[in-house]
Design a protein around this nucleic acid. Sequence first.
DNA 1: GTCTATATCTCGATAGAC
DNA 2: GTCTATCGAGATATAGAC
Lengths: 206, 206
Amino acid sequence: MQSEETKVDTEERIIVAALAVFARKGKDGARMQEIANEAGINKAMLHYYFRSKDKLYEAVFRHVFNRFSAQHATAVKESPTFAKTLKLFIDGFIDSIKEKPDIVRLMVNENLSGGTALGSMIVEKQHEKAAPSILKKKLEEAIKNGEIRPVDPDHTLLTVLSCCLFFFIWAPTIHIKIPKSKDWDAFIESRKEHIFDVVYNGLQPQ
Amino acid sequence: MQSEETKVDTEERIIVAALAVFARKGKDGARMQEIANEAGINKAMLHYYFRSKDKLYEAVFRHVFNRFSAQHATAVKESPTFAKTLKLFIDGFIDSIKEKPDIVRLMVNENLSGGTALGSMIVEKQHEKAAPSILKKKLEEAIKNGEIRPVDPDHTLLTVLSCCLFFFIWAPTIHIKIPKSKDWDAFIESRKEHIFDVVYNGLQPQ
DNA sequence: GTCTATATCTCGATAGAC
DNA sequence: GTCTATCGAGATATAGAC
């Protein structure tokens, strides 16, 4: 028999493994056997814990979505200048993606397959506390202050997100030129600086 | 019996249908039946023309890759100022993606699944004539001229590509706020302007 | 809770009539 | 070249011993 903690642990292990496989192959492309292997358990256990592939996917998606919106939101909120806010957002956002890139990859897969799971959850979870919402608000404030040029806040937010996310999605292609492991970390750090540099300058009054 | 032209036509129809499905679901997630439906033909025909799913995928990928690198390269080459070059690149790039967004989605899927198909083809096809290579060269020239600030050309190119590509990948999520069809076109046009605005200003000497 | 064995079904692929 | 019917591999899911 198994303690309650170990049960939660196994559930967690399954979720993490499933996330990795779903992120690579998408819902339909993923194989239960592959998930079981990645979790280091038997294939039958997946069904014991989550009944079906659909239910497992749903669980992964829900689990992931909570983390995604809760991440690093606090760090951005209280900063004096817009420059600081933007820097904190970029660094914090990229760090959080770097830690769990599969989350973004899962979301991308869901977007590519035209997933219905997005609609309900995003509307439900896109609350004011999420970091992107905060950045948008700070953008609008900075425009009123004259701290930055009068750009479209939605487009600007999308631009920052694009710059922070895309290279994770495109990583294998980038790795053809930039070797993995150590160089990748250095690349990420230089990317943070570049994004802030170009975007912040791009928003400056002339 | 069927004429040679109709045969080519059917092959083309299959490729286009397969591209759409592979772009949505990836290689493993795609179903031959779905491709057949999308092409308006029988499932057996797929095997008649391409023998296997693997071979069909390979054909799609090759077909797509040629178009991808050949696109709109000429328009960028001959332009007097860096500003013009950048504007032409952004507009042309986004237009070409807008016309066939599935190409990007297929590439993203290949990246997500860590596809091996990328390595060989990209190295092989990333010749000097491709538009991104040209933009990079123009960036380096403009830096030497003092026309723009001394930024990292690789990062800058990646930034522009990110801004132009990401919103296509993320489209379903964006569509939750921005309705499809007519508004989407307007959104794309405003996006072109925004990207040029922010990036070009971001590269200006202070 | 965990494993083995197996049932059930879906999918890729082929055979064969037309 | 195109269709229907079907085979066989491989996938999800369940049964049942431990």
